Computed example of a mutant assay.
Amino acid sequence: MTTNKKNVIELDVRPILKEKGDPFEKIMTTVKLLKKSETFLLHAPFKPTPLLTIMKKKGFTIEINQLEKKHWTVLFRKEE
C-alpha cells in the first residue's frame, strides 16, 4: 500500500493472487482506512466484478482500465 501526492492509496493484489492467496480482507482493510480526501487504486490481474458490486453498495464510484491482458486498474472514489 502506497500513497502518492494526489491522495491515492494503491494496492496491488496481483502478487497475492499469484501465490493463490485471497486479497479480499486486505482490500476491505484498505477501504476502511481511507480518509475522505483519498481515493483507492486497485491493481488486479482481472476485472474484479464481484468487488465492483460491493464497492458500489458502499457508495463508491468506479473507474476501470485494462492496461494489459492481465493487468487491470480500478479507481474507487467515495461519492459525496
Rank of each mutant, 00 (worst) to 15 (best):
K26V: 14
L41W: 00
K36W: 13
E38H: 11
M1K: 04
K36P: 15
I54S: 11
F40Q: 09
A44I: 02
D22Y: 12
F40I: 05
L51N: 02
L52C: 06
E63F: 02
H43W: 12
V8R: 03
K6E: 15
Q66T: 04
T30V: 04
E68F: 03
L33N: 15
T39Q: 14
E19A: 06
K20L: 10
K26G: 03
N4L: 12
I64G: 01
P15Q: 09
I64V: 08
L52N: 06
F40N: 10
L42P: 05
K35Y: 05
V13P: 03
K69H: 05
L67R: 04
L41F: 00
R14A: 04
V8L: 07
E10G: 07
L52S: 04
L17K: 07
P15W: 07
K70Q: 10
E79R: 12
T39E: 14
M1E: 09
K20N: 13
D22C: 06
K58T: 03
S37N: 15
F46Y: 12
L41M: 11
K78G: 03
T39P: 01
I64Y: 01
T29V: 13
K5I: 05
V13G: 05
I27C: 12
M55H: 04
T3Y: 11
I62R: 06
E25F: 11
N7Q: 12
R14S: 05
L42D: 08
F24V: 06
T2G: 11
L41C: 09
P15R: 07
V31I: 15
F40D: 10
E80P: 15
L67C: 01
K35N: 13
K32R: 13
L17Y: 10
K57W: 03
K58I: 06
A44F: 01
L11P: 01
L11S: 00
T30H: 06
P45Q: 02
V74C: 09
I54K: 11
T73M: 02
K47L: 13
V13T: 09
K47C: 10
G21L: 11
K58E: 15
P45W: 03
F40W: 01
E63A: 09
E19G: 00
A44C: 11
T39A: 10
V8D: 01
R77E: 15
K78S: 06
T73Y: 01
P48M: 08
T53Y: 08
K6N: 15
M28H: 12
V8F: 03
E63I: 02
A44P: 00
M1F: 11
K35Q: 14
L41S: 04
V74I: 15
G21K: 14
P48K: 04
F46D: 01
M28P: 01
V8E: 11
T29S: 07
E10V: 00
T61V: 03
K36R: 14
P48I: 06
H43F: 15
N65K: 14
I62D: 08
